[in-house]
Design a protein around this nucleic acid. Structure first.
Lengths: 302, 302
DNA sequence: GCGAGTGTTGCCGGATCGGCAACGAACTCT
DNA sequence: AGAGTTCGTTGCCGATCCGGCAACACTCGC
């Protein structure tokens, strides 16, 4: 939203330091410093006293802080009023998702939504893609985030994220230095794979079948986390999606090498709802939000 | 400021139409339309009902309008509180300016300042540059905006705007089609000039003297407005500054052709205060604001 | 004096904003 | 009914703003 300056300002006032506020907001200190400076220019007077150990409000700053709180509260209360109008007060939404999308996509999007609609509560349940579709058909899930779900006329996809298959390797593994890995090669590798109820596994099976190879996985599991751990421990390679490996890659614990091959079907994360079913207002709003997040996620990580 | 969306929103709600709000704010309707759309996305619901004859608030919109008013009021009240702290309540500032800078520079800057500090009142007096300096020394002016004022150790320049000399011509005049005019040529032209108390006139006189030419002005006046009218009526050419002709140029009534010549001294508009004198808080704030405006004006019109 | 902690600044890539012109929709007046 | 008017919206583009990064300046405590 556009009230960034006031949010930054209030947070700095609370923490007494640009640095701490920056950590709390997960932005660079310079961004906050600039917004404070621009606010001071707008009011034509310093709002903080700069000290060696942080920032202390000036008298003028105190007045602005009061304003900042008023502003932020009143936006919050407008949201609450709208929630009430739309029957989202005390709403509850049941989201089922594949494990691989949870950390990198579902939770960040959920955090945004929850900040806007604090009174809505959630179930976040994890299952394999096949099971997800079943939950949706059984009306046990309002929204599912599935990986290459089977086509079904009662399942409506609102948005999708193309998510490449990668080979996850320990940074010291020989594979980690490569630009890509061909399908034909993975038959020879020490591999960990998800079990056959996973959309990811179906994709891999189809590809290796088309290439005429047989896989001898060193480990089969029903947990994405365990696939990551396998590779992180240097026990061998795992096949995962880029999205599921992002955090470990950024933090240097894994390297993700793209899989290459002519039979590489589009690997696709989809936000799905049950066709024809009328969702609760809260669920509808969250579904819209997830779909929007998916589109911007897709745009940002191509 | 960054609360644009809420200002736009409130104004549209008040006027009941994007177009009227756009006219009132002097921005394009599309800009407002977008901000409204983004606000609606932020709240996840339409805030206006689109009708053939304008926009009508929805119920959700009414809730947001309340918020918008709270926000805008509370910013206003923070300003007022700061003004009070700084002793700017009911301040009064006496500004003296050259006529040529009034419309294009002084009034826009003043409007911004006045929006931020509504309780400050002004004298805006017009005089020639020589007289301005005298007012400042006599403590009859707090701030002056002068054109190439004479150097004086008690006159402190806070900021300056380089302002090129131009020949103003009627659009049909032969000169209007040219890229530039050399000093040497203006001796032959039918010219209007300000009288000798104007900084602008001093500049012209110095240049023609250096070029060894004598001028036979067709009209001498103590009013910039009359110089403009002279050229607009097609009676001949006027020597003016780019800043003083901008509006007429934009609206197609005049063409401004740059003057060229090696003796062309920098033509310069300066924001000046009396050195050593302690200004009232309101005057100090306005001086700062004018100086800042001058810098951004200079940056924007090179 | 030096290191650790702080806030700020220059630079740059990406996102946003506003102006312009063209469009589509709905009403009004022949 | 049809032409014209009055709306709001959208695509495009240039200018501006914002945030990340790295280097810097400053203060305090050892």
């Amino acid at each position: 939203m556009s009230l960034t300056r006031y949010r930054y300002f209030a947070l700095v006032a609370d923490h007494g330091s640009v640095r701490e506020a920056a950590d709390a907001l997960r932005v660079a200190p310079s961004a906050i410093s600039r917004q404070i400076a621009s606010l001071e220019e707008e009011y034509g007077t310093p709002l903080f006293e700069r000290r060696a150990r942080g920032m202390r409000l000036t008298t003028a700053g105190t007045a602005v802080l009061e304003t900042a709180r008023t502003i932020l509260d009143s936006v919050q209360s407008a949201r609450a009023a709208i929630d009430e109008l739309q029957g989202m007060k005390r709403g509850h939404v049941r989201v089922w998702t594949v494990e691989g999308a949870m950390d990198d996509f579902v939770y960040p999007a959920l955090a945004e939504f929850s900040a806007a609609h604090p009174s809505v509560s959630f179930d976040i349940m994890v299952a394999s893609s096949d099971q997800l579709v079943q939950r949706l058909l059984d009306d046990e899930a309002d929204i599912v985030v599935a990986f290459n779900p089977i086509q079904h006329r009662s399942v409506l996809s609102l948005a999708e994220i193309a998510d490449a298959l990668v080979v996850a390797a320990h940074p010291d593994d020989a594979v980690a230095a490569r630009q890509s890995v061909r399908i034909a090669e993975i038959g020879e590798m020490r591999l960990a794979l998800p079990d056959r109820t996973f959309g990811l596994r179906r994709l891999v099976d189809d590809m290796v079948a088309a290439a005429g190879i047989a896989l001898k996985p060193a480990l089969v599991t029903n947990s994405i986390q365990s696939l990551r751990s396998f590779a992180r421990a240097g026990l061998g390679l795992s096949i995962l999606t880029r999205c599921a490996t992002r955090r470990d890659v950024v933090e240097g614990r894994l390297v993700a090498v793209p899989l290459q091959g002519r039979n590489l079907r589009k690997a696709c994360l989809k936000i799905c709802v049950r066709n024809g079913r009328t969702l609760s207002p809260a669920a509808r709003a969250l579904a819209r939000h997830l779909a929007r997040s998916a589109r911007s996620y897709a745009a940002g990580h191509v």
